[in-house]
Design a protein around this nucleic acid. Structure first.
Lengths: 193, 193
DNA sequence: ATCGATTGACTAGCAGTGCTAGGATTCAGC
DNA sequence: GCTGAATCCTAGCACTGCTAGTCAATCGAT
C-alpha cells in the first residue's frame, strides 16, 4: 500500500509540475511557445509522459485555466471583502478583474480565449469556475433591479472581457482603460453623467 | 502596356481568389483548417504563389479581416438608415452587430480575435476599419452626454464583443442572448428597469 | 523568325508541430 | 533470484508554415 501511495504522490507531483511549467512557459513566452517538446524538456521527461497525464495539449491548457479561475475567484472575493458599500465593491471588483487580466495575460487567455474543453455554465462545471462567476454575480446582483441577476451579471462580465481582449489586441487604444472603467462604473451605479 | 495591364489584372484576380477561398474555407471548416497547402490546392496553384501575394498566412487572414470590416460597416450603416429615432438606431445597430458575428463566425474571428498585424486606431488604419468603428461611434455618440464619445463607444463596443466571444466559447449560455440584448439596450437608453 | 533575358511557378525540402506505436528498462512481489 | 507488470523512452507518422533552387514559358529586341 505504501509503495502505491508513494507512486500516486509522485504522479500527482509530476502532474502539478507539468501544469506549473506550462503556465510559466506561457506567461513568459506566450502560449504559441508552449509545445509538447519544449514542455517535456523543461520537466526532464519525454513527450509521451505528458499524454499519460493529460489527453492532449488542450487538457494541459485546461488545467492551467482551472487554476486561473480559482485564483480569480480568490482575488475577487478579497476585493469585495475590502470594500464597504455596494458601489465600492463593484468598483473594486472591476478594477481587480482588469488588473488580473493585465497581470496574467497568458492565464487569462487559457481561461477565456483559447478553445478548451471545459463545461462552462453547466451542472458539471468545475467548482473554481462556479466560484469565479459567483463572485461577479453576487457583487452585481444588488444593481440588477427586477432584471434576472444572472443575465445581468453576464452582460457586465462581457463588458469587462471585451475591454480586456480588445485592448490586448490593440483594437482599442491601451492607454484610455481608466476612462473606460469610469464610464462603466458610472453606467452601472447610476452616477451623474 | 496592354500586356502588362493584363498581367496586373490577372494578378489582382488571383489575389482576390486567394482571399475569397481562404474565407470560404475558414467559414466552412474553421481557421484551423486553412493551411497553405489546402489553400493552394483549392486555387489550383502551388504553395509558393501564396507568398508572392502575401508575406505569410497572417497577411491572408488580415486581408479577409479588412473585407469583413467593410461589410460590417455597410451592414451597420444600413441598420442606422432603416431606423427612425436615436434609440431605434442603437437597437438596430446592436442587433446587426451580433447577427453579423453570428452569421460569419470565421470572419469575425479574423477581424477581432486572431492576432493579425493591422494598425488599429491609428492614422494608418485602413479605411474599412475606420468606417466600421465610425458607425458604432456615431450611433452611440448622442447617448454619451458630457463623456468622451469615443471612449463611450469603445465601452459599448467592448460589451458587444464580449457577448459575442463569451457566447461563442460557451462561457455564457448561448440561448439567453436576447435577454442580454434587452438589458444592454435598457442600460444604454435609460429605459425603465 | 529567332535568340537571350527575365519573369514566374513549381518541386523538393527544412525545421518544427501534436501525437503514438513499440520496444527497452526498471522494479515490486513471490 | 526470477517473473510479470508497470513505466518510460526512442523513433516515427502525418502534418504545419515557409523557402531555396530549378526549370519552363513568355516577352522584347534584333
Amino acid at each position: 500500500m505504501s509503495i502505491q501511495q508513494r507512486r500516486e504522490r509522485e504522479r500527482a507531483q509530476r502532474h502539478e509540475l507539468i501544469v506549473r511549467t506550462a503556465r510559466e512557459l506561457a506567461e513568459s513566452e506566450g502560449w504559441e511557445a508552449v509545445t509538447t517538446r519544449r514542455l517535456s524538456e523543461r520537466i526532464d521527461y519525454s513527450q509521451p509522459v505528458l499524454y499519460s497525464h493529460f489527453t492532449g495539449k488542450d487538457a494541459i491548457i485546461g488545467a492551467v485555466a482551472v487554476q486561473g479561475f480559482a485564483e480569480l475567484a480568490d482575488a475577487l472575493a478579497a476585493a469585495r471583502a475590502g470594500a464597504g458599500t455596494t458601489n465600492e465593491a463593484v468598483v473594486a471588483v472591476i478594477r481587480t478583474y482588469l488588473a488580473f487580466a493585465d497581470a496574467n495575460p497568458a492565464l487569462y487567455d487559457a481561461m477565456f480565449v483559447l478553445a478548451i474543453d471545459l463545461p462552462f455554465a453547466q451542472a458539471a462545471t468545475p467548482a473554481p469556475l462556479q466560484a469565479a462567476f459567483g463572485q461577479l454575480h453576487d457583487v452585481l446582483a444588488p444593481l440588477a433591479g427586477d432584471r434576472d441577476s444572472g443575465v445581468f451579471a453576464e452582460v457586465w462580465w462581457s463588458t469587462m472581457h471585451g475591454l480586456v481582449t480588445l485592448a490586448r489586441g490593440g483594437r482599442i487604444p491601451a492607454g484610455a482603460q481608466e476612462q473606460r472603467v469610469a464610464i462603466l462604473v458610472d453606467q452601472l451605479t447610476g452616477a451623474p453623467q
